[in-house]
Design a protein around this nucleic acid. Structure first.
Length: 744
DNA sequence: CATACTTGTCATGGG
DNA sequence: TGCCCATGACAAGTA
């Protein structure tokens, strides 16, 4: 029961401290439950610094740390684990190697889809189409596509975020982009509205422009909505609300070269925007989630195979599978079909990807079935058309497109994810005052229920560098400066106010601290072996307050001094009076009882020596009682000092943890942006490959296939099939239902 | 004088 | 069992 209470109170205390240090409401649960067990262990676990566990065996073993065994700094250990966990968590961002092997297997014998669509538009001149698609801001990308993906390696590598170090301009830009994406999200409007206003007042006028654009977008917006388009709040661009439609707009725009290029770009830019263009967060999340979905598919290959790996007897399969050398087959090559760059780019975080075959990445891949399983193992049996491309590739919008496939990933864009991009991160990353940031966040989240004045907490980064290195090591005099910086922040705050600063100063000047110095106390014990060395000790007892327990023998000797009423009779008397004032009550009592040895001895001697000392003198019972009381109180006094010091250190450690977590979070956020950017690039490449492959396919008559009737689809064995679009749509729908069911 | 903070002390419990 | 330590709670002193 007691231990339960202990855990409860300590946990609550530390939790509260944590929250107050953060200064804002933070969804600690997400931290605690997902990736960061160390913090939870610190708060709740048996490794808490408040635990009664006494690490006697660890005493003084922390390489000169000199900290109390109960305040062993677990950070080194937990930080390692935390970082490891985070690195592992990055697996979720892994992007598989893409290797496209496509071959034309058959032509739809039935022409099940209406052939009214002119197919001429899709005689893809892929380069020009790509130019259109990529838009004006993507001149670089065009050359990328032409020169191959090996350059993308460098490209992707180049945009890789700096794992550590100061924020670069790019980092700040990334965060800014992310912020704008929050604004751009329609769902996020209400959530971020207030903060948005705050931010725009204080920080970013540009955001206001974007928001106003979104708010006041004219009738054009309604039209776009009617077409199920979203409007980018910043650019006013309209783009499909969901990914398939997204692709649709692109691909349908490609063949229609007669359209005004501006409109095309308007439609296309959201998906194919360059890295400099703003892109919407939902899209990014969908991208990310699609990657995760792919990985999930990788696990559930059996399911996929049931769906798409039709058995040999399957009529579909037999109907649409052709021998590789069928005349209608054009041996279309996929230039640099493998996205090896991605593999390399992400292999840092994904051992799985690393192990994927990349040998064929640099060669031209014939459009024949290959034994390569990389496609299968990465994208699974994903219906390429369904995933990356619209149900219709025809020239008119929403012409024969089936019902809009619900986005299976949209639901994952929940508020928790949005929450991750919090103001604090931005504050940290953009380097403005965390106090301001916490105030901002607190203002629109004022129902935190905590009465702690977190808005004034200078907890985070303003003092981070100093305090982060201090805390647990504050017992050593070398850390006094760091400790002082941390504690001064507390003092300014006025909340905690345990000023280890003054204490460390006292250590150096008055040499008074007796507490929280295991090394010292050990040294004292050793020195007590020789009573002649005792003189080195009492001067250590002058802690700022005049409750000091011990005093110098000289003070003891000159203890017979006039009372304070007879002050100012001379410098000598003044000093004596001062020294007298420095005496503690027990010292006064000891003097009154004529105890023949110092209180230091009484307190600090080991039991045996203490008893030996007592036996040397003929002491009355009252004296003995007083001596034992003095010893008890003295020890307890030191214990209390140590205890308080430990408390302070625990708080400082928690503060440092919070800062570390905030930094980690911001870093991960940066990396997330980078991953999403890379993913977008890969998607563009896959899309262009698709178009290139599809555009080169010819039927028996040498005519290109109509994208409205046919689609490319991955088969289970890694090959790519040309199947009727209706079939592709069906399979796409089935596939989209599947993950939903799986989630439920 | 009220208040917050610091420090000392006691009681208690655990090792 | 006695000793030691940790710590909550309280008191006294201080700014």
């Amino acid at each position: 029961m007691l231990s339960l209470k202990k855990y409860l109170t300590e946990g609550l205390l530390q939790f509260t401290i944590l929250l107050s240090l953060i200064g804002v409401r933070v969804d600690v649960d997400t931290y605690l439950t997902s990736q960061l067990p160390p913090l939870r262990e610190i708060i709740l676990g048996p490794s808490s610094a408040y635990t009664q566990t006494q690490f006697h065996n660890l005493r003084n073993t922390l390489d000169g740390y000199g900290i109390h065994p109960k305040s062993i700094d677990l950070d080194n250990y937990f930080t390692a684990r935390r970082l490891l966990n985070q690195v592992r968590a990055l697996d979720r961002f892994q992007v598989p190697t893409t290797e496209v092997n496509a071959w034309l297997v058959h032509r739809d014998p039935e022409g099940s889809v209406s052939g009214s669509q002119p197919s001429s538009g899709l005689a893809l001149e892929s380069s020009s189409g790509l130019q259109d698609v990529t838009g004006p801001d993507n001149g670089v990308r065009e050359s990328e596509t032409e020169q191959g993906f090996s350059e993308d390696l460098e490209d992707l590598g180049a945009v890789a975020p700096p794992v550590s170090g100061d924020l670069t301009k790019e980092d700040i830009d990334l965060i800014d982009i992310l912020w704008r994406q929050d604004i751009d999200l329609g769902a996020g409007r209400e959530i971020f509205d207030y903060s948005h206003r705050q931010k725009e007042q204080d920080v970013d006028k540009e955001l206001q422009d974007g928001a106003e654009q979104e708010d006041t977008w004219p009738g054009e917006g309604a039209e776009a909505l009617a077409r199920n388009l979203l409007v980018d709040g910043e650019t006013g661009e309209s783009f499909p609300a969901q990914f398939p439609a997204d692709i649709s707009s692109i691909t349908e725009a490609v063949p229609s070269e007669s359209e005004p290029p501006g409109l095309q770009n308007n439609l296309l830019s959201p998906l194919l925007t360059g890295t400099e263009s703003p892109f919407d967060l939902e899209q990014q999340w969908q991208d990310l989630m699609s990657i995760m979905e792919m990985q999930a598919m990788e696990v559930n290959t059996s399911t996929s195979e049931i769906l798409y790996n039709a058995p040999p007897g399957d009529p579909l399969s037999t109907n649409y599978s052709l021998a590789p050398n069928t005349p209608i087959n054009q041996n279309v090559s996929l230039h640099q079909a493998s996205l090896g760059g991605c593999s390399q780019d992400f292999s840092l975080f994904s051992p799985e990807v690393e192990s994927l075959p990349v040998a064929s990445s640099s060669t031209l891949l014939p459009l024949v079935p290959s034994n390569s399983t990389s496609l299968n193992s990465t994208f699974g049996s994903t219906n390429l058309a369904g995933l990356f491309f619209p149900p219709q590739l025809n020239g008119t919008a929403n012409d024969t497109a089936g019902p809009e496939l619900p986005d299976p990933l949209g639901g994952l864009l929940d508020e928790a994810m949005l929450d991750e991009i919090s103001l604090m991160d931005l504050a940290i990353e953009e380097g403005f005052n965390p106090v301001q940031a916490s105030q901002l966040e607190e203002e629109f989240d004022s129902d935190s229920g905590l009465s702690l004045d977190s808005s004034h907490s200078p907890s985070s980064l303003s003092s981070s560098e100093g305090s982060s290195s201090s805390s647990s090591s504050s017992s050593s005099s070398s850390s006094s400066s760091a400790s002082s910086s941390a504690s001064s922040s507390f003092s300014e705050e006025g909340a905690v106010g345990y000023s280890s600063d003054s204490e460390t100063l006292d250590l150096e000047e008055a040499e008074g601290a007796v507490g929280y110095q295991p090394e010292y106390s050990k040294f004292c014990r050793m020195s007590y072996q020789d009573p002649s060395q005792l003189s080195c000790l009492p001067y250590l007892e002058h802690v700022g307050h005049n409750h000091t327990y011990n005093m110098a023998p000289s003070a003891l000797d000159s203890a017979d001094l006039p009372p304070p009423s007879t002050l100012k009779k001379g410098s000598k008397e003044k000093q004596a009076d001062f020294l007298d004032k420095q005496m503690s009550r027990d010292e006064h009592r000891a003097r009154a009882m004529k105890i023949p040895f110092t209180n230091d001895k009484i307190i600090n001697l080991p039991v045996e020596e203490f008893n030996e000392l007592l036996s040397k003198y003929q002491l009355s019972e009252a004296q003995l009682s007083l001596i034992r009381d003095i010893r008890r109180r003295g020890k307890n006094k030191m214990a209390a000092q140590n205890c308080r010091k430990r408390k302070l250190d625990t708080i400082l450690n928690l503060e440092r943890d919070v800062e570390d977590l905030q930094r980690d979070k911001a870093r991960l956020l940066r990396e997330k942006v980078e991953f999403l950017r890379s993913l977008r690039q890969m998607k563009q490449k896959v899309q262009s490959l698709y178009q290139e492959v599809f555009g080169r396919l010819r039927d028996e008559n040498g005519r290109p296939y109509s994208p409205s009737q046919y689609a490319l689809q991955y088969a289970g064995d890694g090959s790519v099939l040309l199947i009727p679009r209706t079939l592709a749509d069906q399979q796409a729908r089935r596939q989209e239902r599947k993950p939903k069911d799986r989630r439920k």
